[in-house]
Design a protein around this nucleic acid. Sequence first.
DNA 1: CCCCTCTGTGTAAACGATTACATATTTCGG
DNA 2: CCGAAATATGTAATCGTTTACACAGAGGGG
Lengths: 347, 347
Amino acid sequence: MVTIKDVAREANVSVATVSRVLNGSGPVSDETKKLIREVAGRMRYVPHSGARSLITSKTETIGVLLPDLYGEFFSEVIRGMDDTAQKNGFHLLISRAYADRHGIETAMKAMRGRVDGVVAMSPDLDEESLLNLPSTIPVVLLCSVPRGYDIDSLTIHNSRGAREMVAHLVSLGHRRIAIIKGSARNYDAAERLRGYRTALKDAGIAPDPALERDGDFTEAAGYSAALELLALADRPTAIFAANDSMAIGVLSALRESGVDIPGEMAVAGFDDIPLARYMDPPLSSVHVPICELGARAVEMLLHGITHKNDHQRRRERVSTELVIRRSTSAMPAERPPPNLSRAKSPL
Amino acid sequence: MVTIKDVAREANVSVATVSRVLNGSGPVSDETKKLIREVAGRMRYVPHSGARSLITSKTETIGVLLPDLYGEFFSEVIRGMDDTAQKNGFHLLISRAYADRHGIETAMKAMRGRVDGVVAMSPDLDEESLLNLPSTIPVVLLCSVPRGYDIDSLTIHNSRGAREMVAHLVSLGHRRIAIIKGSARNYDAAERLRGYRTALKDAGIAPDPALERDGDFTEAAGYSAALELLALADRPTAIFAANDSMAIGVLSALRESGVDIPGEMAVAGFDDIPLARYMDPPLSSVHVPICELGARAVEMLLHGITHKNDHQRRRERVSTELVIRRSTSAMPAERPPPNLSRAKSPL
DNA sequence: CCCCTCTGTGTAAACGATTACATATTTCGG
DNA sequence: CCGAAATATGTAATCGTTTACACAGAGGGG
């Protein structure tokens, strides 16, 4: 492996001069510049970023701590982060870790000396583990915001999204609207529930505990919760699932029970995963700009890194968007049109 | 930031001793061990991995160079890689790069001194850029194998998968089987085409150029290619799309044209993306073990890293699996059952 | 009792870069 | 023509570790 010393020796100059040429710092005669560039190129010299980091104490890398995620969400959030990172000359060091205290601490330690800052996500909030992060480096929290703590964080505007969706159902004339909740300890789930309740209140509808069913974000949970709701003496006319996976489970259950959608029962989800538009009927959902979420998180982090001193900590939220399809309103058949944009999957 | 020197001073020993205790190297008295551990813990000392790497010349990080990927494929391949990497104490440095010469070279340079090896993917093969990688570090190529070069590589067994799928169509009695091809320069696409042709040959069916339509892996391409096929005087009775996205486009086109699937026209895809089983009718496809692909790539790379000297270069292929659903055979309705495994998307 | 081995510890040289400071040469105003 | 300022380059310290080598004291075999 050729080092800066090798280049210096070959060009008969000191390492300092080589460094100056390659970084454009300090004054060097045009002649020497040319020579060094030529030699470095010929020897295929590539600076050792590790060594550079050590002395400059900048790694130009940001750490990403994610729980075990699947599918679209993972890809999109990474895409958003990488775009912004790359635009600013930064790299991404990714680590999937358990969201428990030990997992996070271990991962954070491993990142010491490798990254300039960390974006961490831990939706099943474990305040303990997040709050005394042993970090002297900037951190941005994603989707899990112990409120009121002095730490940068970025969340989906869950409550507003849920509220809008339920308001939409109300506007269609529904009065008995059920919700299938997410895991109890999950921050996003809690917020979506809050939005649901607010919307009912807005509409002057008395909440009915029987219409709030437990769930855990899985298709199976949606499936069984739907069956329970159907068995109710006083059935709801609409079901709002706290995420699309559960909504899909609901669709299966209703279909098997011969319930007409949306005529007999309207169904809505949250997330707007790619599957949603392909359901039968296509599923109304709350679209989450995942990519943007990642991008914004990195922006916040980079600000924290560059303005280390005068960096104002913030809690931010990214907005969602209502996507109405046939599962909530009997519109003229919306056939998924050939998807021109993102369909180009590599294989 | 507390360093090893701070700990040494506080404990009244030399840095060497601290290092020895923390790494379990060399002999240290139990008494001293205890003391140092206590002090290090109290001071919240965390070793600086960057500095360590510099002297040991091991970063315990592997670089991942991926083109601009979407959705499931990206997540799954990363998951597989991260699992294996973590199991071996390694981290993942991820970079999305253009698959052209410049992009790859830039990315590779940026990784110098940050990683011990690189897994690179570039399905639109650009032999030039891949072959004279300026790398002195181990590299494993993913899904893009300029044959016969001395370099580690891992591929999907595309040709066999395609061959099996077409053989399946033949076994159902089809003789006029069309294919919608992928991008001309794409390695996977070329191999799938090869498998298709082999299968026809196996069955003693003369190839018909009119049945080989161009495509580019997008839904839109599948859609229009299907319309062209329908307009043919001598229509095929089955369409094999080189990936699922195009197959989905085909389904749309056929549905709109009122063609019965699979009665009038059988349809098959490749990849088995999660959407496939939710199509109407559910789409037969060739399942690709993406996660395993990533895992195996990292295994190969790690072998190359640890056995730097006596490492035998290999070309490997991971096997696919035929998944037959209703789009190729009129079986009793296969309703997607509640998906218990992976459905738990985070939001 | 001497020498050798083993244990426990410290000193200092790496690793590959950046950069403050020193030095030598040139330029130029007065 | 002198001294200051500007230009070009080199020397060496530094970042936070690991580790080869040196050394001191203890224990043991001959």
